[in-house]
Amino acid sequence: MMKKFGFTINAKRAIDLDINDRSIARQVAARVPSWSLCIGCGGCSATCTAGALTDYNFRKLHLLARRGETSALRKQLNNCMLCGKCTLQCPRGVNTRGVIAALMELLPKE
């Protein structure tokens, strides 16, 4: 059986936009304007090698960042190998590598 670590991006709690702090999302959107064009198609996560081997889901990760659900994301992001395949795939032309770099810098280290 796989060992369960104490973090997950599938929390059961509802996303509450009244209380979530979305300041990181605002900073990422300002640095990487194309991020706002995401339509959640999942092309990035489908092509992602890290996603094929682990439960790392880049589409979901950056959507949660947008909603201000940032806990556990920084650790998840360590799965990324910065290969850039996701950027080559994105139909909306999102600079996903830029998003990853911004998130790595802005998300609090746990």
Binding site: N10, R59, K60, L63, E69
Partner: peptide, 12 residues
């Protein structure tokens, strides 16, 4: 539901 996140969502 924020269906892309697979989580319920609420706000005012």
């Amino acid at each position: 539901e924020d269906t892309l996140a697979g989580r319920p969502l609420k706000m005012t």
